[in-house]
Design a protein around this nucleic acid. Structure first.
Lengths: 230, 230
DNA sequence: GACAGGCATAAAGATTTCGTAAAGACGGTC
DNA sequence: GACCGTCTTTACGAAATCTTTATGCCTGTC
């Protein structure tokens, strides 16, 4: 009655449950879309992107888990799955595949509504900011471990990324060869400065416009390297 | 009730514990963010960088240790991990991976609060500890090994910097040739006073407005040099 | 005013460090 | 077992730094 009119997609094959949810959610002020099968759910989600999905894992056509995976390929809205009480393993797999929360059938409508509110609130928060660090024309998404240059994704090997992350975490400071080697390669190889030289070279090849005249990965001759502060 | 309103992130899958922590911490005046899974924790941490993280190592989705590692790739705030009593090895691994402290479940809230206070106090201490020294229009950032003149970065070679740092550490005092040579070049070359002349010249060229009429690096004829006190 | 000693500065070797490409070794995958 | 991506190792030209040498300046003394 008071709600913001968020669009909820219900993917549920049992008609009684759908009817029950329809009554409860519309009276809370949500807008609704309903799908009676996984296939239909995917189509509807694509046509009318929902703010939240309620997905029953026990669907007749394709596996509920499969629907979940296919949704998560592009949908960032929260997904709450409904599971039968005796399907413990299912909900773990579902959370793994990107579900945000679960409710066990039979459920109290109050609990479901509460979880919906939390999920939507969270989604809005998380969506409001892309948690990224920007330096020049570079953008770092720390949680996803992605690096963009002029909004184009740049690929790094594990060690390259570790070195870059270490420099970024201490950006602005001069970092000695010894420190970087110890952080990235471990205490054993802290003398092998030639490792650094070849990896710094690859970082530059990928990050800099002119690797010979670096803007980000700067060398401090005789001491180490420094990542440009901003 | 008295607190500074530090933002705490709780990553904990068990709802009862979350509820318990929520009650205790908000009544202490902390602000809270909660995440019920590691994945969510990482997202929330990135969106709302916390002042402290409480991380349960026994999470359902990704391994708690993995969450810890991924957080530490970029987050500098203190992390306190919660471990089960019989998981001795876990907490050692966690501390190794960058956790700041641990609390064993079941825990007394008083102990947790005390450890939180310590961790936050320590973190602030370290953060505020940017030991920059200002002398005239110069600024020395010792941890970053950077020197600025009128907020413009000035580059020094290893020996130049070592000499400058030695003079700065003893600024105001008259330092003999012998002393400076021994500190910078070692006991072997403590007679080679011409080294000093050459390097003092480069320091002046980089630091002084008029190298012929130095303001910072002063000559004490027949004795040595002195770095201006302030 | 000539001279000596200490100092400042520039510039030419000598030495070390750095950047880069490319080859070899390694590990996982199909 | 061949392939791919990654890491390690090697080699060499380029760059930066350190050492050495040379020259000139300033000050004070005789």
């Amino acid at each position: 009655m008071q709600q913001s009119g968020h669009l909820i997609l219900i993917i549920e094959d049992e008609q009684p449950i759908r009817r029950f949810l329809r009554a409860s959610l519309t009276s809370e002020g949500y807008r609704l879309n309903e799908a009676a099968s996984g296939d239909e759910g995917l189509r509807v989600a694509a046509s009318y992107p929902p703010d939240l999905v309620i997905l029953d894992l026990g669907l007749p056509d394709i596996d509920g888990q499969e629907v979940l995976r296919r949704l998560r390929e592009w949908l960032t809205a929260p997904i709450i799955v409904l599971t039968a009480r005796d399907q413990e393993q299912q909900k773990i797999t579902a959370l793994d595949a990107g579900a945000d929360d679960y409710v066990t059938k039979p459920f109290a409508i109050g609990e479901l509504l509460a979880r919906m509110r939390t999920a939507i609130r969270h989604a809005q928060h998380v969506a409001s900011e892309t948690p990224t660090v920007r330096i020049g024309d570079l953008r770092f998404d720390l949680t996803a471990r992605l690096v963009f240059k002029r909004e184009e994704i740049v690929h790094f090997t594990p060690l390259e990324y570790k070195l870059l992350a270490t420099m970024l975490k201490n950006s602005g400071k001069v970092l000695t060869h010894h420190f970087l080697l110890r952080e990235v390669w471990g205490p054993e190889d802290s003398q092998e400065t030639h490792y650094l030289r070849v990896f710094v070279a690859s970082l530059r090849r990928k990050l800099e416009d002119d690797p010979a005249r670096p803007r980000y990965v700067l060398t401090e001759p005789g001491v180490g390297y420094r990542f440009a502060a901003e």
